[in-house]
Amino acid sequence: MSSRTFAQINCSLLGSKKLRQCNHQEKWAYLCAHLSPLSNFRGQFSYPLPLWARDADLTLDEIEECTNRLQELGLIEFAPDEEVVRIIGFHRQRPPKNASIMASLVSDFVGDLLEGGSDVGAMSLRGAAEMVVASVQGAQSWKPDSQEWSKLRDLFKPFMNRLWQEHGDAFVAALKAETQGNGKAVEKEIGSLFPILLETQRSAIPAPCQHNAPTMAAYKDVDVDETRLRRDLDKDGDEEKDGANFRRETLSAESRTETGDLLRMGASGNGSIPLGPREETKRSALANGGR
């Protein structure tokens, strides 16, 4: 996509909390990045500091201070070696309106990612993630049966898979950062196009623990001879207990046997313990008086 001859800036930019922390020079330097003829529709372009200083009517030292301050506030990213600037939130402010503009941006980002260096490539990756999320967010106003939906899905699904294959977790992290706070509908739509995003989010959530995990007792060094001696003593004690229990049960059985024999002998009249009163009792005065 060619350079712009005009710029679209939301009026709400004046109410930005980050921008309100800037002084006049920093605000003007930031607006020059939006209005520069070197800028493009990706929000990331080469902007040499001498040209930037000329546009903002600042010295080189002043423009360097401004770029450092704008980076601290999270308004821009700047690669000093390549002198490439990226306006953070460029696509969030003005998302692409249709699938045709999205396709043009995808083509530009692919070329930029292939040509850029390490710092520029990382910036382009974050810019691509921002563009995808902003496009899906803006598409929420489309009708559900709009043909633009199928074009969007056919465009972004291979694009995100390609970025993931080439950049791995760096792209997933950038995409995850952009989806936060954009609502469940946007997250669900992007997850249907790029399921790896939802899988990484689920794996990052720790499983709840309902009960305390069981722990093993601390290791205790035990002497082998002492253990064997205790086992023998326990064995002897068990044998003594068994012998005492056996004698107790034997005596109890013998006692029950003798008592039964005595009862049986008395009942039959053949034993030494007869049933009924004795002869002395029968001849007593009490018995005779009763007669």
Results as ranks from 00 to 15, higher is better:
residue 178 E to P: 05
residue 228 R to V: 14
residue 160 M to I: 04
residue 234 D to P: 01
residue 256 R to L: 09
residue 160 M to L: 05
residue 221 D to E: 07
residue 209 C to K: 14
residue 245 N to Y: 08
residue 251 L to K: 13
residue 197 L to P: 09
residue 88 I to A: 01
residue 119 D to T: 12
residue 131 M to S: 02
residue 112 D to R: 07
residue 196 I to L: 14
residue 149 W to Q: 04
residue 114 L to I: 06
residue 38 L to F: 05
residue 255 S to W: 04
residue 255 S to M: 10
residue 85 V to Y: 03
residue 69 R to Y: 09
residue 38 L to A: 15
residue 195 P to C: 14
residue 40 N to E: 04
residue 17 K to Y: 04
residue 189 E to W: 11
residue 217 A to E: 07
residue 173 A to L: 12
residue 225 D to E: 12
residue 251 L to F: 13
residue 135 S to H: 07
residue 130 E to D: 09
residue 29 A to C: 14
residue 266 G to A: 15
residue 142 W to Y: 15
residue 113 L to A: 05
residue 77 E to W: 07
residue 2 S to G: 14
residue 164 W to C: 02
residue 131 M to A: 03
residue 178 E to D: 06
residue 4 R to D: 04
residue 154 D to W: 01
residue 277 P to F: 14
residue 211 H to F: 13
residue 191 G to P: 09
residue 58 L to W: 00
residue 183 G to K: 04
residue 47 Y to T: 00
residue 4 R to P: 00
residue 252 S to H: 03
residue 266 G to T: 13
residue 130 E to G: 01
residue 172 V to T: 13
residue 291 R to S: 12
residue 208 P to Y: 00
residue 224 V to W: 00
residue 242 D to K: 12
residue 14 L to S: 13
residue 152 L to I: 07
residue 67 T to M: 12
residue 92 R to Y: 02
residue 134 A to H: 03
residue 178 E to S: 11
residue 71 Q to D: 05
residue 124 S to H: 13
residue 154 D to G: 15
residue 187 E to M: 12
residue 80 P to D: 09
